[in-house]
Write a protein that binds this DNA or RNA. Structure first.
Lengths: 251, 251
DNA sequence: CGAACGCTTGAGAGGCATCAAGAAACGTGG
DNA sequence: CCACGTTTCTTGATGCCTCTCAAGCGTTCG
């Protein structure tokens, strides 16, 4: 069995204990498949679990009458889906597969045990949530204060940084299975503006499109230009509890 | 001693055990004072704790060369400050008191014990983080897709809902100790646009300003108009572990 | 009482949305 | 393998919303 994406991502930050790794691998044993454009959950429904995304991309968007209104979150392999809905009885977002995808449920009901048996894993999940909040704030800054070009550039840099964690990047090049309309819904621009921004970045030599892949030809330079900060590569984990060496009996 | 704001807020969601309440009250025993405009932490510094804000308002903003650039978060009494920086070794935001304030530190170093002794409190903190992420997404939607008027209206509704939790609201009226410039930095508008939006809302009868207070005269109506969802009043807590009945020995 | 700060309003400019239409790529079924 | 429909990308033209700049006024605080 190939190693779970989530385990790979966690190992980027800490050395997992065998018990922790085993617990996660077991939880991820039976992925469910979701084909492109199909729904994991719709707004108003219950979201009875958080999910580990194993393969593919997933979007969470608000559902307005017509087309999709605003893409709130974009998930890549190894990400936890639905953490932002933990506190909500009913989902406020639509979860849709952007590509064919596989994911594994961690039912809400299993979390209490996890708190006791694997507190460090909960802590790591907490850490992810905190890092993602920081990234969300970066998106806010971009939408509020930056030009369309810089907005799109920042989006690409953020996506790049997140994909780096699971090794889906070669030489600053990665595949981006999102339409320009979807990108627009994520960064708050119209399709037309996204297109113009992309073409501008291309003409400036920042961006190279080759078949379905995309390369950031002057990534460092672009990052400085739009004040991009990589929030995911390093994470402070000094505050985490110790890893469980065995699943503790509930005695 | 008057009851801690945080305890009051938590009791809104669950019945705290005596051990949990005692732990929090003790942690909040020695508040530090912070006077208006003074810094709790600057960007680039370490943020060695998360803080419970006991009184006053606090802002977290990005620091651009000139004025403050973007207000990322606004904290009210009872809020946890700095949760979004847990995963960061160095703060990426400036924390500044918007009014005279008092806060209590929960050092990062004390979190591991808390994970073991009071897992439900950690879970509640996690829940807050998740709810706040959902609110952040609402802000994102507003900035990307809504008019200046609706943006400001949503901001006021969100602020109202959060203040309701700690009882700082009378008859839909509350005090807002923020300049229009600060509001602009929070919602991504210029001072001028904020002013025009406020005056517009006032002329429509949605907003009444009386000395330093502010009243949402047709709150329900306005809420429907801008698709406001109150994310803080209710929180799903079915996934929380059981409350500790006594501080467990680390044996 | 003066200075700093915040609020208010006007005028002008610019960037992005919207509308529209055509080209290219993709997928699907014959 | 080709034909067709759908989706996605691209580009131009127009208009509107918000930013910027600027000036005047009111309030607060030292």
């Amino acid at each position: 069995m190939t190693e779970s994406c989530l385990v790979a991502k966690l190992k980027h930050y800490v050395e997992l204990t065998p018990a922790e790794a085993e617990f996660l691998e077991k939880a991820e044993a039976e992925p469910q498949k979701l084909s492109r454009r199909s729904n994991l959950a719709s707004s108003g429904q219950k979201l009875p679990a958080i999910y580990v995304l194993k393969t593919g991309w997933l979007l969470a968007h608000t559902n307005e009458e017509d087309g999709m209104d605003m893409v709130a979150e974009i998930y890549h392999p190894g990400d936890l889906v639905g953490v932002s809905q933990l506190g909500c009885e009913f989902s406020t977002l639509n979860y849709v597969a952007a590509t064919d995808a596989e994911l594994c449920a961690l039912p809400k009901g299993s979390l209490p045990e996890m708190f006791v048996a694997f507190p460090r894993l909960i802590g790591l999940f907490f850490g992810f949530a905190s890092v993602e909040r920081a990234s969300l704030i970066d998106r806010l800054r971009a939408m509020g204060r930056m030009s369309a070009r810089d907005c799109v550039a920042l989006f690409l840099l953020q996506t790049h940084a997140r994909l780096c964690l699971t090794g889906a990047v070669d030489d600053d090049s990665f595949s981006l299975p999102l339409s320009q309309e979807t990108i627009g819904n994520a960064v708050g621009l119209s399709t037309v503006s996204v297109n113009r921004a992309i073409r501008l970045l291309e003409s400036e030599g920042h961006l190279v499109r080759e078949q379905r892949r995309l390369r950031l030809a002057q990534r460092e330079l672009l990052a400085r230009e739009v004040d991009f900060v990589d929030r995911v590569y390093r994470m402070d984990n000094s505050w985490l509890p110790a890893g469980a060496t065995s699943a503790r009996d509930p005695s």
